[in-house]
Design a binder for these strands. Structure first.
Length: 425
RNA sequence: UGUAGACGUAACGUGC
């Protein structure tokens, strides 16, 4: 069994989940000499989770529970719970958590940390705090990862003071923060428009002997360019190189995108050229950021040139890239060209999503063609892609109708909205 | 101590 497990590990590391699964089924399940054990299933289970095949993962877990002699242990359950959290299925993860005692298991620190991280990413900070207190009350002592998960969740919801409070609490409990702790806080401050506080915190972490890494710098850079502190950001860019913390594609992309969003697209293009000179290859996110900047500035021709450049460099545009272009055409009232773009996407094997339609619907409304926009909302639900309209789509329609004096029809749409299970905001 | 689980960073659509 050990040898088989090692082989499975290798397959799973090379992302050949199907082959791994087949081997377990054909060679192990019915074997007397090398039956699967908890390690076998953990390898498979984490493979499914990493591949995003959560339905398969759940089926496997239930299979192990009901059809095998292997009793699900904390690690197996931990893998499943973490996978569900990462797939934004925290509620189901909590269901498994609550059913643990039926399996004779009691949650450990890893399971709590997964759940805290998942809740935090969903914005459920009150639930996270409650779970944290419950775990402490149960006598489970949080470690640095537990605290970091909680702090990060609070930061994501903009609750920086609360996060600082947890930092104090962890230090008070004798748990030393790490660079990850500080990076969550720096990122939270940057994203809430407090980049000055973010850079202060970075200085403080250094004073306490922690070394910021590229991710810490990237979080800070994001905040700096969002507040148009371009020169300071470029200063930090050289500082990074000086201290041996090489800027990576994410650093440059954050800068490039921030410049674009601040209306400084030409400067962004300079930085794009600069990163290539520094042997850092822009990726699809980098190019899309610049393309979006050009599109928002109505510079469609240049955007299309950049699109061909990225193709030449072997970088494949994705859904977001096309959505940016399509939005650009819509904003210029060139809805026909936007619709052509949808065709192109199909032929490129690129799917479309609710954002694609959001841009089209808005384009039609703003072009004064609100009735066509309403039709489009029905089309999107019936086509082969079957996309559910969301709040943004309905808001766009309501706005379009109101601005053309059709308030009655807008109220009608409000009704369709709740029929679609979509809440007005 | 023969094999398994948890934490931080970048791009797209709506109103004023």
């Amino acid at each position: 069994t050990f040898s088989y497990n090692c082989m499975l590990q290798v397959l799973i590391k090379s992302r050949r989940y199907g082959s791994a699964s087949e081997i377990v089924q054909s060679e192990m399940i019915n074997s007397a000499s090398h039956p699967p054990d908890a390690y076998t299933f953990s390898a498979l289970l984490s493979g499914f989770c990493k591949a995003g095949e959560m339905d398969e993962a759940v089926r496997l877990f239930d299979f192990v529970r009901s059809r095998t002699r292997v009793w699900p242990n904390l690690v197996l359950l931990g893998i499943l719970i973490d996978g569900l959290c990462k797939a934004h299925r925290v509620t189901e993860a909590l269901d498994y958590f609550r059913q643990m005692q039926d399996l004779g298991l009691s949650a450990d620190i890893v399971i709590y940390s997964s759940l805290l991280s998942g809740l935090g990413k969903e914005g459920r900070t009150d639930d996270a705090m409650e779970l944290f207190e419950a775990m402490v009350a149960r006598g489970c002592t949080p470690n640095v990862i537990t605290y970091n998960s909680l702090i990060d969740g609070l930061c994501r919801s903009g609750k920086i003071d609360g996060a600082m409070g947890i930092l104090e609490r962890m230090v008070g409990a004798g748990c030393s923060p790490t660079v990850v702790t500080y990076t969550s806080l720096v990122d939270g401050l940057s994203k809430t428009g407090n980049v000055d506080a973010a850079s202060k915190l970075m200085k403080e972490m250094r004073r306490r002997g922690f070394v910021p890494d590229v991710i810490t710098y990237n979080s800070l850079m994001f905040g700096l360019v969002r507040e148009s502190k371009t020169d300071v950001a470029l200063g930090y860019l050289s500082e990074m190189m000086d201290v041996g913390c090489e800027p990576d594609v994410i650093t440059y992309t954050a800068v490039v995108d921030g410049l674009c969003k601040g209306g400084n697209v030409d400067k962004a293009i300079e930085v794009l050229r600069g990163m290539i000179r520094k042997r850092c290859s822009p990726n699809v996110v980098t190019y899309t950021a610049v393309i979006d900047g050009l599109c928002k500035g109505g510079r469609m021709d240049e955007a299309m040139v950049l699109l061909s450049e990225m193709l030449e460099r072997g970088c494949k545009p994705n859904l977001v890239t096309y959505n940016s272009l399509l939005h650009g055409y819509c904003k210029l009232g060139r809805v026909d060209e936007a619709l052509e773009m949808i065709e192109d996407m199909g032929s490129q094997g690129c799917s479309i999503n609710v954002v694609t339609y959001g841009a089209i619907v808005d384009g039609l409304c703003k072009a004064g063609n609100v009735s066509e926009a309403r039709k489009m909302v029905s089309v999107m639900q019936t086509g082969s892609s079957r996309i559910r309209p969301d709040t943004v789509i309905f808001n766009t329609l309501v706005d379009g109708l109101c601005k053309t004096g059709n308030v009655g029809e807008a109220v009608e749409v409000l009704g369709e909205m709740s029929d679609a299970g979509c809440k007005p905001d």
